[in-house]
Design a protein around this nucleic acid. Structure first.
Lengths: 129, 129
DNA sequence: GGAATAATTGTTCAACTGTTCATATATACA
DNA sequence: TGTATATATGAACAGTTGAACAATTATTCC
């Protein structure tokens, strides 16, 4: 019964303490340290912008090529111009990409270095799993 | 008409070259450098795991408190145990969290330091916008 | 064994998402 | 002005999602 590690023993004590209310202080303190709902909403939205395979492909291509037009992105990732345009609008709205229109052609690029960092961190995570 | 910067001029040339096929080499080379579909799928899934406000709240709490039980997480983020459990299952399946059951109580924590890094990078992005 | 507690699971439903196809803008060029 | 090209937009459709509620499992304590 008590044949367990120090850490486990502490957890057992904590476990029995949960309903007894001894851990309540920890919960109350953490609750106070939470950010407003809007913060978590924005955070979730940022990740959501990168949560679709078509969009990750677009971002990846823009990470490597810096600036690309809609048609070339479509050719690179192997889908229709329309699908790419729809996804680019989402990325535009989320401020992940910016664009620069020259004549008939719209060149897209990643909005800032933060996006690069965030995306590369995700790449690393997937590559090392 | 030609009253524009060097960069813009290059883009104009590129723009007229698109359909002419001069840029095709760039597209072909980038196409070759793309990773397989499964890679982008996994990447998107990872971001998707963090793309819901309830889940960002859970991850945030676990970033700060290291280890928490389901009931305490629910109390901290202000929702039901059931909702938290459902979301934790998603995070578990995506290998973003691991758990450790002691008696009736299940303690959850972030799976590895990569998750922390990735999440903190997202936090930074939102905080600085 | 039975009651109480922590967590999980199943189900339902409204809301949302991404793609496709058709159509609309915008621009260049003849 | 008319045609071709690059992109954007709108509508419809199938598939997915998260919340809510009820029911279930697993564990502890009496």
């Amino acid at each position: 019964m008590f044949n367990c590690s120090y850490i486990q023993m502490r957890k057992m004590i904590a476990a029995t303490a949960v309903s007894a209310g001894i851990e309540k202080e920890k919960v109350r303190s953490m609750k106070k340290r939470m950010k407003p709902d809007s913060f978590f909403h924005n955070l979730a939205e940022t990740f959501k912008a990168m949560s679709d395979p078509t969009r990750t492909k677009i971002i990846y291509a823009l990470c490597r090529e810096n600036e690309l037009c809609v048609h070339d992105i479509a050719a690179i990732i192997g889908t229709t111009d329309s699908a790419v345009s729809h996804q680019l609008r989402i990325l535009r709205n989320m401020k992940l990409v910016r664009y620069n229109k020259v004549g008939k052609v719209t060149f897209y690029s990643l909005d800032d270095i933060h996006i690069n960092n965030l995306f590369e961190e995700g790449l690393r995570h997937v590559e090392e799993k």
